[in-house]
Amino acid sequence: MMRRWVCLVVIAAFLALVPAGAAVAGCGEDVDLTFASQECADKSSAEIEDMKTQYPTATWTVRQLCKDDGRTPEGVCFNPQECTTAAGVPGTRYTLYRDGEVFGTACLTADEERKVGDPPPIRILVLKAFENLDWPASELEVQPPDGRTLVNLDTNFYTSNTEATSIPVSLVQARVVVTAEPIAYRWHFGDGSSTTTTSPGAPYPDLDVAHVYETTDKVLVSVDTQYGAASFTVNGGPPEEIPSTIWINGEDQDLEVVEALPQLVVR
């Protein structure tokens, strides 16, 4: 009789802990009856750390799942549900909450459980954010101008995007400024050839980045920019290096390669 009563309490607790929609949090749609019959897997400590970087302002907490309703006032189970962690060592099962809402379950060791509430290291957030920031594409200048150039003669390419760009971002309630500068340029000449330089090119007559078209054609030209030499500051503190680089593709421009026809000029 006692056992049945305990079980009913467990069922009630289970239903209370798993509100509508919560049981499938983080899992995909039911693509077939096998998926429809299954539960979501316990999240590992590594997956929780990864989710912290995806939701940098969220608060993550866990509550131990018990085999019965025996629990200390602090919420620690007398008989915790046992599980095997992703690392293959014994752990206990927890309900995982994001901002107080059930997000799923997790299988964690005691050490891993203690780390759940720690904010993600800001450096990891910055490294992750670096590639998603809105780094400006370089504007391409072509000489001769106005979308026309001559076959068999140098066409000059350059960009004036040479300075460092700083982008402010808000991460875990800190003012972070990420700075990077162009370190390389990839020039697409539109006739199947391209070249990569550290030089941004220069206006005529330098011909620092130049290309000779061998046939008349209508081509699309562009310049991609590699940002690197990056750093970030937190709340105005000293800069810390970011080892990442990122390529930002430039916009295509029309360029018509034409032939210069000789004309007799009467003087």
Partner: peptide, 28 residues
């Protein structure tokens, strides 16, 4: 059910020259 892409976790245990399934769960 439309079908499509799904991700599975399966936990095995070795038994003689083969395996047995211990867990089969859906992964995000």
């Amino acid at each position: 059910l439309e079908g499509g892409r799904g991700v599975q976790l399966i936990v095995l245990k070795p038994v003689d020259s083969s395996w047995q399934v211990l867990e089969s769960k859906e992964l995000p």
